[in-house]
């Protein structure tokens, strides 16, 4: 058994909260630069230039790219040969979030009770924790802050198996079209197909972690990703919804076996500030 102190996990989470909010991943930046070359609308080009300039300012001056520094969504892969020491894991994770959001001057956006009082918890906790036990003796942590604007435009449908690929396409296109300017396009569309209601939404979120430009290893699914990206970019919504060719940078699909009676589809929309950072202990 390899011992890992949860205090180390808290320290890593503190650092990842700050870094993920200050630094846009390189692949997202490159995708924005590519879209600028292809964009036809003069206004859309100006917007894309400003978006690129913004991430540069954030990186240089060490400030958040976007003021909505999100809820702290954490994917934790815990090796089964790791023994955690030094205290409660969940408390350590929340302590890391608490320190990261304070020391990074990040906005605290968590409210409790969600429909009655909606009082700010003051420290952006609790984190949203998705933990998985895996083989090995390492702890992998992915931190993906998620803003409210794009999350609010996400959707879930319990489609019938007979709805088929056409049903999936229609649901995706309708969801993106209806969202319009609200989720801050250009967007990344994470799609989960299959599993149960919670599994499909979880894999839709995991799909957002994929490097922009990479496709699902299954060629049929990769083909569907490309088709959907093309269809979405025909909608004309454009950067910020001002009209143009760049509505989405990527469509990423993850699948999971489903019940014989079910074909759930979840769509998790991510704005152009597609933040995530990871570390392995």
């Amino acid at each position: 058994m390899r011992e890992v102190n949860v205090k180390e996990i808290a320290n890593v989470i503190e650092r990842l909260c700050i870094e993920s909010n200050y630094y846009l991943p390189e692949d997202v930046k490159e995708a924005l630069q590519d879209s600028l070359k292809k964009e036809e609308s003069p206004l859309a080009k100006e917007i894309l230039q400003d978006i690129l300039k913004n991430q540069e300012i954030a990186r240089r001056t060490q400030v958040p790219i976007c003021q909505d520094t999100g809820l702290a969504v954490i994917f934790l892969e815990l090796g089964q040969d790791v023994r955690l020491t030094g205290g409660d894991l969940n408390e350590a994770i929340n302590e890391g979030v608490r320190r990261g959001y304070k020391n990074g001057y990040l906005r605290k956006s968590a409210v409790d009770d969600p429909f009655l009082v909606r009082k700010n918890t003051g420290d952006n906790t609790p984190a949203i924790i998705h933990a998985k036990i895996v083989a090995g003796d390492k702890v992998k942590i992915i931190l993906a802050p998620k803003g409210g604007g794009s999350e609010n435009m996400s959707a879930l449908a319990m489609l019938k198996p007979s709805d088929g690929v056409e049903g999936i396409k229609k649901f995706v296109i309708d969801t993106v079209d209806k969202a319009g300017s609200n989720p801050c396009p250009p967007i990344i569309v994470g799609i989960g197909i299959g599993g149960t209601i919670e599994k499909t939404t979880l894999i839709a979120k995991e799909a957002l972690l994929r490097t922009v430009g990479q496709h699902n290893p299954n060629p049929e699914i990769a083909k569907l990703e490309k088709e959907l990206l093309e269809e979405i970019n025909k909608l004309g919504i454009g950067p910020q919804g001002f009209g143009g060719r760049t509505t989405a940078l990527a469509v990423n699909i993850e699948t999971f076996p489903a019940h014989i009676a079910s074909m759930p589809v979840a769509i998790n929309i991510q704005c152009h500030v597609a933040r995530h950072q990871e570390a392995i202990i």
Partner: peptide, 28 residues
């Protein structure tokens, strides 16, 4: 940023107002 409903558009016309968008996500 984002879409407004009909009541807001009607009020913009009635009271001679304007709705601007700043770039969402360009906080820095």
């Amino acid at each position: 940023k984002g879409l407004r409903n009909k009541e807001v558009v009607d009020a913009i016309r009635k009271y001679n107002c304007v709705y601007f968008a700043a770039i969402g996500g360009a906080g820095a």
